[in-house]
Simulated scan of single mutants.
Amino acid sequence: MSKFEVAKEILLKNSNVQLTDVGYQSGYYDQAHFAKEFKKMSGQNAKYFGPLCPI
């Protein structure tokens, strides 16, 4: 499973998680790399993905 897929799973399962922790738990070196790759792969910022998305 790719780092991106791991990050997606974490975000979908946990609505009360900090994005920095998601990045590190999924294997990214730092928050900037996680944020950049997540946006590139999903087309949206991680903070607006899944349950973190304000309705």
Rank of each mutant, 00 (worst) to 15 (best):
Y48A: 07
K39T: 04
E5A: 12
Q18L: 02
T20V: 11
Q25K: 15
L12S: 01
K40S: 12
S26P: 02
Y24D: 08
F34Y: 15
M1V: 12
K40N: 11
A7Y: 00
E37H: 12
Y28K: 07
K36I: 04
T20P: 03
Q25D: 15
Q31T: 12
F34V: 03
A32H: 09
V6P: 00
Y24W: 13
N16A: 09
H33L: 11
F4T: 09
T20H: 11
V6R: 00
Y24H: 13
A7M: 03
G27A: 14
P54G: 05
G23K: 01
A46C: 07
E5S: 12
V17I: 15
S2V: 08
I10F: 03
N14S: 01
Q25F: 12
Y24I: 14
S42W: 03
V6M: 00
D30H: 14
Y24R: 14
I55C: 08
M41L: 06
A46M: 08
L52G: 04
A7T: 01
E5L: 08
I10S: 02
A46P: 07
K39C: 01
M1G: 11
M41R: 09
E37K: 15
K13Y: 05
E37V: 14
S26Y: 02
E5N: 12
F34K: 03
V17R: 04
E37L: 13
M41K: 10
Q25A: 15
H33S: 13
A35I: 06
G23D: 01
K40Q: 12
M1A: 13
F34Q: 03
Y28W: 11
G27L: 08
K3E: 03
Q31F: 13
L19D: 10
K39A: 01
Y28Q: 04
K8Y: 00
Y24F: 14
Q18F: 02
Y29L: 11
M1F: 05
V6H: 00
Q18V: 03
K8C: 07
Q44I: 13
G27M: 10
D21K: 07
V17D: 05
S26A: 15
V22F: 02
N14E: 04
C53A: 14
K40L: 11
K8D: 00
I55D: 13
G23Q: 02
A35N: 07
A46W: 05
V17F: 03
A32G: 07
I10Q: 02
K3M: 03
H33P: 01
A46T: 06
M41P: 00
Q44R: 12
K40W: 08
G43N: 08
N45I: 05
A35P: 02
F4M: 04
L19Q: 11
Y29H: 11
Q44P: 04
K13C: 06
L19G: 06
C53W: 10
